[in-house]
Write a protein that binds this DNA or RNA. Structure first.
Length: 106
DNA sequence: CGTGTGACTCGGT
DNA sequence: GACCGAGCCACAC
């Protein structure tokens, strides 16, 4: 099966997500802002959903701006487990200590 | 080139 | 705190 090359915009998203340190989480909006496109939060979500570098890009460290987990291609449960392993406590699809684990690019 | 869709965000109720 | 509607962006068809 042919490989699907991500669009340039998606690549930028992946690089930004890669910068998120272990044990920390960021938001789609933050990434969008980091890319100098504060209104592209939705496009960022689309890019991560397509994320062809799944284990390489920590897409599970990206959540909604309000602290909710949002979505995950492998299932929200998987996201919770991965985050918990990294020290991020989440419960019922929501981050517990959101302000503490929140990571800002700026 | 126009339309539809989504892992978003914000403000109001 | 939860739910709803409108706005915005990039991409696939």
């Amino acid at each position: 099966m042919p490989k699907k090359e991500p669009t340039p915009f998606s690549k930028e998203v992946y690089e930004a997500a890669r910068l998120i340190p272990c044990g920390r989480v960021s938001t789609y909006g933050e990434i969008a802002r980091f890319l100098k496109r504060p209104r592209t939060a939705r496009a960022v979500g689309n890019a991560l959903h397509n994320n062809p570098f799944a284990p390489e890009v920590p897409c599970h460290r990206v959540v909604l701006s309000n602290g909710h987990l949002g979505g995950f291609a492998d299932g929200a449960k998987r996201k919770i487990t991965l985050l918990k392993k990294e020290g991020v406590i989440s419960k019922a699809g929501r981050i517990d200590n959101w302000p503490e684990v929140f990571f800002s690019f700026k």
